[in-house]
């Protein structure tokens, strides 16, 4: 068989076998991706159904305006604000730590560290992210809280502050790592341009790299906020179970997530109105984090386009 005959015979080989196998592989892969999508949809559907049932019994106005949350008591009040207050208080405290420290760490890693230092430090920072959150929770309860009590004796055994502090350190690597990615993505040519205009390293960082990476950094921040709002274990262990409207971080509070844990673990009857509250709270939580993630996504896409 000469070469052209060989080429022809290969090119004209029956396609059906190939096609059938490709189709099968495609179907299997589609099935697996569908599993995760349908799971998500299923969760949303359940949340939605139970939430609607809940709101048939409790008015949505009461849910958002009442200032007491006592579904587990004889006199039931369904004001979600104290739980939102607890969540926001802890998350805000955590961000006060995670944002500045995370950004400074990212600036060091991206602009100041030598290649060798970065290669050692970045994985170490990321190890922090691998510590199970239950460990952080116990650390807050058994180490940070006693420390706080030495400084402020009125600190309660369960309090928002210790959860905030520990959560801040838990989220720090996320902020640092994502911000560092955003800053490393700033083209070297911009740094060179700034240096050539007589900028110092600090000016290059502050006036060129950080502004150019700003949308990426904001995306990291918002993702971190979303993470703080959704964080469960630390607050369930260390922040308490007393829903209250307060800005005092030394007091015991309850977050939305901690409330859901409390009801899920307790002996609340499944069909009771108290049980249904967790779906309404869960739905609200889901909406809050979804919103954050969408904003973060949008910002990330925006910063990818910046240099084009």
């Amino acid at each position: 068989m000469n070469e052209s005959q060989h080429v022809l015979s290969t090119l004209l080989r029956p396609r059906a076998d190939h096609d059938r196998r490709e189709k099968l592989i495609r179907a299997v892969l589609l099935l697996f991706s569908a599993v995760s999508i349908f799971t998500t949809l299923g969760i949303i559907a359940v949340l939605l159904r139970e939430t609607l049932l809940f709101f048939q019994e409790v008015s949505i106005v009461e849910f958002f305006t009442e200032t007491r949350w006592t579904p587990l008591f004889a006199s039931k009040k369904f004001g979600v604000l104290p739980l939102v207050n607890g969540t926001v208080l802890v998350a805000a405290g955590a961000m006060l730590i995670a944002l500045p420290l995370g950004l400074l760490a990212a600036i060091y890693l991206s602009e100041y560290a030598s290649d060798r230092a970065r290669k050692i430090l970045k994985p170490m920072l990321e190890v922090l992210a691998g510590v199970p959150t239950v460990v952080y929770g116990y650390f807050a309860l058994t180490f940070v809280t006693p420390l706080l009590q030495k400084i402020w004796p009125q600190t309660q055994a369960f309090n928002a502050l210790s959860a905030s502090i520990v959560m801040g350190f838990m989220i720090l690597p996320l902020v640092a790592s994502l911000s560092e990615d955003a800053m490393s993505a700033v083209p070297q040519s911009l740094r060179q341009a700034a240096y050539a205009l007589g900028a110092t390293r600090f000016e290059v960082t502050l006036r060129t790299v950080v502004p150019a990476a700003l949308s990426g950094i904001s995306a990291a921040f918002i993702l971190a906020v979303s993470r703080a709002i959704g964080e469960t274990m630390i607050v369930a262990i260390a922040a308490g179970q007393q829903p209250k409207l307060t800005l005092n971080p030394l007091q015991s509070i309850e977050t939305m997530t901690a409330y859901i844990v409390q009801v899920s673990l307790g002996d609340t009857p499944q069909q009771s109105i108290a049980y249904k509250t967790i779906f309404a709270v869960g739905m609200l939580l889901f909406m809050m984090t979804l919103m954050m993630n969408l904003i973060s996504n949008w910002l990330t896409r925006r910063y990818r386009e910046v240099y084009e």
């Binding site: 040519s189 911009l190 050539a196 205009l197 007589g198 006036r207």
Partner: peptide, 26 residues
């Protein structure tokens, strides 16, 4: 001693801010 590079590398800022950059840091 200023420098102009091979590939144009303006900052992702306004035209005005690009020109003002060096003066501002100085």
């Amino acid at each position: 001693i200023g420098m102009v590079f091979q590939k144009p590398n303006p900052f992702p800022k306004s035209i005005y801010e690009n020109v003002a950059y060096g003066a501002r840091i100085n």
